[in-house]
Amino acid sequence: MYNVLEAENLCKSYLNKRALQGATLTIQQGKILGLLGPNGSGKTTFLKIAAGILHPSSGKLLIDGQKPGVYTKSIVSYLPDTEYLFKWMKIKDAVQYFKDFYSDFDEKKAFALLEFMKLDANSSVKSLSKGMKEKLKLTLVLSRKAKLYILDEPLGGVDPTAREKILDAIINNFSENSSMIITTHLVNDIERIFDEVAFISDGEIVLQGNAEELRSNKNKSIDELYREVFQ
């Protein structure tokens, strides 16, 4: 099994704080990894480095054997925790935008997913509710045939029905040739879709393991383990 992502001793410091302090993590092809930690633990920092929009202070991170750059951006599909679509866009413009820039984008799949999410291609991005925006972003990100999907809080601020749709979309569109990292602090809703979990605390990975093994070794759910680590 080959590692799609390898991070070794990854550090990122800002003027007044250290967001990552030697995080080491690997993700194999075909696996879904849950990166779990409370706010400010360094989850987003880690993902931003992998997405190529933040640069580590020291340590290394390789995706498909390459440092983050133009190549890795072409095989990484990143769902940020921000509202990054242009305000002038209609949903179909956003689809076209992704089609124009990513050669692995599957337009048919995008429209099928829009239908599944009950989004109208003609409505404007500005007018969407928080939950609908999240669904749209996820549609765009999952419609790529990427090697690595990076989803930052895909369930954040979304009502339970939308949550279910989002989970379905993730499971349906995941292929064994790709890998996925998902961050969340809503562990309970999503723990059953993780192959692996990694707990991150104060910029360090404090525990990484196979979700099923952790369950049987500790006789606890991942959610309970999470509460125990971060109480």
Partner: peptide, 13 residues
């Protein structure tokens, strides 16, 4: 602005 997330994640030099 947040739009940076759109531009700087594109595979563009």
């Amino acid at each position: 602005d947040d739009q940076g997330y759109l531009l700087f994640t594109l595979p563009q030099s």
